[in-house]
């Protein structure tokens, strides 16, 4: 589970107390403090065909309506992630019932593997996201531009091929390598962090 500093935790618990005392608008602070890790976790654990932001919003709404059940002083994020995990599972089950889901959206084994990771992965996405940002920043310029083109500018593979004077197939291969490199970088940083703590 990721750690947030004591001061943030105090602000979060205070906001929850205010909501429970009837100040519904204080829930905006709760959403603001938890949205980034939750959305990141959901984005990486939702199979194709599911909108992670919708599940995140649904989870916040459930948390708000059941806030009386939350025990103040305990880990709110863990509680919220448990709700999100359940919401995601429900949505995956609904989607899986779509007759041609697997041929339309995703191989069944990917869905199962994501479900498995949902159960075992800690909600460490803030660190993962922070490390990913750092890893992207450390990419060589000729590699970093591919990440910007594909994920920020969202230009087509054809345009990327044109800009880099390569074939589309070579661009795809390049993206595969970059993602693998970034994955290794993030894992290394996470394990180094684990050892240091």
């Amino acid at each position: 589970m990721s750690t947030i500093n004591d001061q943030d935790e105090q602000v979060l618990q205070d906001a929850i107390s205010r909501v429970r005392s009837g100040d519904g608008s204080a829930f905006a602070s709760v959403v603001r403090m938890c949205q980034s890790p939750l959305r990141a976790w959901l984005a990486t654990h939702s199979p194709p065909g599911i909108d992670p932001d919708e599940i995140a919003q649904r989870s916040f709404v459930v948390a708000y309506t059941q806030l009386e059940e939350f025990e103040l002083g305990t880990n709110f994020r863990a509680w919220l992630f448990a709700i999100a995990r359940f919401q995601l599972k429900t949505e995956v089950t609904r989607l899986r019932r779509t007759a041609d889901y697997h041929t339309r959206y995703a191989p069944d084994l990917l869905r199962r593997e994501l479900e498995r990771r949902c159960e075992v992965d800690a909600a460490d996405e803030p660190e993962r996201l922070t490390h990913l940002r750092k890893c992207v920043d450390h990419l060589a310029e000729h590699l970093g531009r591919f990440v910007t083109w594909r994920y920020t500018d969202e230009i087509t593979l054809e345009e990327m091929a044109h800009r880099s004077e390569r074939s589309i197939s070579a661009v795809k291969k390049q993206l595969w390598k970059i993602r693998r490199k970034l994955q290794e970088c993030v894992e290394q940083r996470l394990s180094a962090e684990g050892e240091s703590t």
Partner: peptide, 20 residues
């Protein structure tokens, strides 16, 4: 495992690219 790693990283990069 490799494919799922690629998928998750792809989604995370997308989220970051779109300005979380």
């Amino acid at each position: 495992s490799q494919a799922t790693d690629q998928y998750q990283l792809h989604r995370l990069l997308g989220l970051q690219g779109q300005g979380l």
